[in-house]
Nucleic acid binder design. Structure first.
Length: 508
RNA sequence: GGUCCCUUCGUCUAGUGGUUAGGACGCCAGGUUUUCAUCCUGGAAACAGGAGUUCGAUUCUCCUAGGGACUACCA
């Protein structure tokens, strides 16, 4: 690494919704870039024409935007090293593939996918494995095993070919991973990867990624651990191109594992355990819907925070970080080596923390759509008071309703268990009396009301607990909710008296 | 199978050649509360195993075991 500025890229493939692991990769790239005053680049790697999914790119953009990961250079934003979509860089790659062929670092191969598949099957039947590598390439249908004339003939006839990297023999490739340290691979265990296919005139990931990272002056490649095995190939390619001097630094992030720890987190796990695996809800072209964090009620800042703590920690006991704090505190050195299991419970906890930090006004606004859905129209000031009272018992805005519905509508039914426990013989008559007392009570505030009620129950020889619980039952339909007399105050004289008067029907 | 990576409470993790191995989530108990939740206090809970180095290893080295990733004309 020279003194060049930090430039990192997030390079997803538009083959479906952005997975939460990909989101974390994007986040770490973003944090690293911002911390160093560098650039966060979004490059769309759509070199697999067969796996292209319409809408996936828009989904990626929308996800990054929702999370507040602002892209400095990309398809939408433009930039000096564009285009940022690989399918629009087609003509660039062929040139570099040819360069490698000319230098003897790559060769043409005419084996058809069917040929290779057949050889794999044969090998498998013999309990061996087939690899297109230094042991087998001279016996296969490629420019290494044919004469110059034969090659020319194949090319002239437009026989489809691929260009494969010619992995040299017996070299110990040393590479440094910023998270793991030095890793060594021997080239004898590596195969000859396809770099380019004539069929669709597109490169594979390996070629496109090296060429683009070089051309876009990427300083650090921060990607998932699943790429670690191809690191030696990439290092060798930088050598083949003669770009070793400016090769980016590499960091391979540990994987996000299933809650049970067995394997990479996948969409299925989310469906099974009931938590989202995607940032935004996604509907596939076939109509299949996958849950999203946003739709499940998660705040983007909570998602960023929980993702940041999955595989990284600040070394302090701080767990809640704003984006600015993350940018300041982040470092690749403190990223863990081992995979982290996703914990849905802790994810909920993070969201709760952020929800509690929100102002009543903000929460009231977020609650509004849910009320509309219930057909409830409420005064904004009233709403804020309700939210203030119940917010400390929810993890999500969507849970506000079940804890506050009685502020908007009289209970339609009463919890049978609570009725049995609290609706004693002497209560109904007293409730009627209480209704009368409240009806003519001049000051309507929690403290005075509590005092008034206490006086009355004392004069009738009833305990506070018995009355309070019965009153709560009448007002809310159950045994839950915030401070009783705060409920009474907020509900207002008219409504409280009405519910009290109706309470007799409970006896049925 | 081959290559590579990884291994501290159930989970996310801190940590050091000598610590009562710390925190968080979750769980349990007690307290606060008229209810529920919050909140507060407390508790159970970990260095995968075996060698070696060392006066002393959770920490350093090696081996074993376990887990994971990769092994496509996908990324």
């Amino acid at each position: 690494m020279s003194s060049e500025s930090v430039r990192v890229r997030f390079a997803p493939s538009p083959t479906g919704p952005l997975h939460i692991g990909g989101v974390r990769t994007a986040l770490f790239n973003y944090l690293f870039a911002k911390q160093h005053g560098g650039s966060f680049i979004l490059r769309i790697e759509d070199t697999d024409s067969s796996r292209f999914v319409p809408g996936a790119e828009a989904y990626i953009n929308a996800s990054l935007q929702w999370l507040g990961l602002k892209v400095d250079e990309g398809v939408e934003e433009g930039g000096p090293y564009g285009p940022y979509k690989q399918s629009e860089r087609k003509e660039i790659y062929k040139k570099y593939a040819d360069m490698l062929v000319d230098r003897g670092w790559a060769y043409y191969a005419f084996d058809t996918p069917e040929d290779l598949e057949a050889m794999r099957t044969v090998a498998e039947n013999e309990k061996k494995s087939f690899a297109y590598d230094l042991h087998s390439r001279n016996d296969l249908n490629n420019s290494l095993s044919m004469s110059a004339d034969e090659l020319k003939e194949c090319l002239d006839k437009n026989i489809p070919y691929v260009i494969r990297f010619k992995m040299p023999e017996n070299i110990d490739v040393e590479a440094t991973d910023l998270i793991r340290g030095k890793v060594v691979f021997n080239t004898n265990t590596l195969d000859d990867k396809v770099l380019y296919k004539s069929a669709d005139e597109l490169p594979t990931y390996h070629l496109a990624n090296i060429v683009d990272d070089h051309l876009m002056k990427i300083s650090h490649v921060i990607r998932g651990e699943e790429w670690l095995p191809s690191l030696p190939l990439h290092v060798m390619m930088y050598r083949a191109f003669g770009w070793s001097e400016t090769m980016p630094a590499f960091a391979h992030l540990p994987l996000i594992l299933k809650p049970n720890g067995k394997g990479k987190l996948s969409k299925r796990d989310g469906d099974k355990e009931g938590f989202p695996v995607f940032p935004l809800e996604y509907t596939s072209p076939s109509g299949e819907v996958s849950a999203g964090y946003r739709e499940s009620g998660y705040f983007p800042e909570a998602v960023n925070n929980l993702l940041a703590l999955l595989g990284w920690n600040s070394g302090t006991e701080q767990e809640l970080f704003t984006m600015d704090e993350l940018i300041k505190a982040f470092s690749l050195e403190r990223v863990n080596k081992s995979g982290a299991r996703f914990d849905p419970d802790k994810a909920r906890w993070f969201n709760q923390q952020y929800l509690q930090q929100k102002s009543d006004s903000e929460l009231a606004a977020l609650f509004m759509p849910f009320l509309k859905q219930k057909g409830v129209e409420a005064d904004r000031a009233y709403l804020e008071r309700v939210v203030a009272m119940v917010k400390d018992r929810v993890h999500f805005v969507s849970e506000l309703w079940e804890h506050s519905f009685f502020f908007f509508t009289a209970p339609q039914e009463y919890d049978a268990k609570v009725v049995q426990k609290r609706w004693k013989d002497e209560i109904p008559a007293f409730m009627e009396e209480l209704a009368g007392a409240f009806e003519s009570f001049p000051t309507w505030d929690a403290a005075s009301l509590k005092e008034k009620a206490s006086e009355l129950m004392q004069s009738r020889g009833l305990s506070f607990g018995a009355v309070a619980n019965a009153l709560r039952l009448v007002l809310t339909g159950g045994a839950f909710g915030p401070d009783l007399f705060m409920i009474v105050e907020l509900l207002g004289q008219k409504e409280v008296v009405r519910r009290l008067s109706k309470a007799k029907s409970l006896l049925d």
